[in-house]
Amino acid sequence: MPRILIVEDDAAIREMLARRLSMAGYETVSAEDGVRALLASVQAAPDLILMDMGLPILNGWQATERIKKRPETRHIPIIALTAYALNEDRYRAMNIGCDDFEAKPIDFDRLLQKIARLTGTYEQREAAS
């Protein structure tokens, strides 16, 4: 099953995401700041990253930029998951290389669909059902 890296500094939201994603059958790893996100993006070899933007040390924009610049991690899809929910925030996230954007509070059905599409499990699920 695909492995998802959850980057989120709010412990309650991090745990909530991990539980929901593992219910949906994903393996999860977590990072709570931008630096740990950068390390985990290589060391945990995730298939997708959920990236909060208001992170300590390095924020989500900085971490995303660095991950998308590195040849070995460039391919990993990143979904920006942020409470900065204006249209300009969406454009900003897409501009620095995020593959998709979800505003908080989270619409889980829609998030799961996006994850499935970006990790290639969507087709498998469609085919199975």
């Binding site: 409470a83 900065y84 509070p105 989270i106």
Partner: peptide, 20 residues
């Protein structure tokens, strides 16, 4: 925008855990 961010963050927890 800032207020919206604060409220959305808390609502993420509230709605998320209510779902759980």
């Amino acid at each position: 925008a800032n207020m919206s961010h604060e409220l959305r963050t808390l609502l993420t927890t509230i709605i998320g855990y209510a779902d759980l």
